[in-house]
């Protein structure tokens, strides 16, 4: 339908024998009209595409699950839970005073991706990070008490041997950056909403 109205198409009408008899009333008017019509049709065609393109974006039920609420009250000091958030694991850890002290005593110069522990937490003991290794996307170990926690007492990625510390910062191994801190807010003293 759009091709039918393409402005370039006008040339054929001139060659037609009917046009030879009496010349069309006003060629400029017709061209302007054709151009306007074609422009309108083009806008319409683009508008037709929009719902299709839009339908591929996350749907409302997917977006509704884009934030996850976590009840912190059952998590004892030194324990951690893994929650699903946007299809990925999130590590929520209630760190002991010792772990916090450990994380904050590291000089910045020793870090591959320098960041203070304070900049990575909202409340001293609660560390919330996305549990996906920044190297190639494996899930690091260290959540269960029985897991290997790596050389820095945090997390250890078994795929390619990345070691993370108690602030989930990369300390050794191929991962380029620290575990990502997602956006989250404390909705009360014992609950957070991630995302």
């Amino acid at each position: 339908m759009v091709e039918a109205l393409a402005p370039g198409g006008g040339k054929h009408s001139v060659t037609h024998e009917d046009a030879a008899g009496g010349h069309p009333s006003d060629p400029t008017k017709r061209d302007f009209l054709k151009l306007t019509t074609a422009a309108f049709a083009a806008v319409g065609a683009a508008g037709l595409a929009w719902p299709f393109v839009g339908s591929l974006a996350p749907s409302k039920d997917v977006l509704a699950l884009a934030s996850t609420e976590v009840d912190l009250s059952p998590i004892q000091e030194g324990q951690a839970v893994t929650v699903m958030w946007r299809g990925k694991p999130v590590f929520v850890r209630n760190r002991s005073a010792e772990e916090v002290r450990e994380a904050r005593s590291v000089p910045m110069s020793e870090l591959k991706d320098p960041a203070t522990d304070q900049s990575r937490v909202q409340r001293d003991n609660w560390l919330v990070v996305v549990g996906v290794c920044t190297h190639l996307g494996c899930v690091p170990l260290g959540q269960k008490p029985t897991d290997a926690k790596g050389d820095y007492n945090g997390w250890f990625c078994p795929c390619h041997g990345s070691h993370y510390d108690t602030s989930a910062r990369i300390r050794k191994g191929p991962a380029p950056t620290n575990l990502v801190v997602p956006e989250y807010t404390f909705t009360s003293n014992t609950a957070i909403r991630i995302g």
Partner: peptide
């Protein structure tokens, strides 16, 4: 509303194109 305007334009164009053809 859009289709009404487009319809008017297309019909006017059709009249113009066919104006010189009996």
């Amino acid at each position: 509303i859009f289709l009404a305007i487009l319809g008017g334009l297309v019909y006017a164009t059709k009249r113009k194109v066919w104006a010189d053809v009996k």
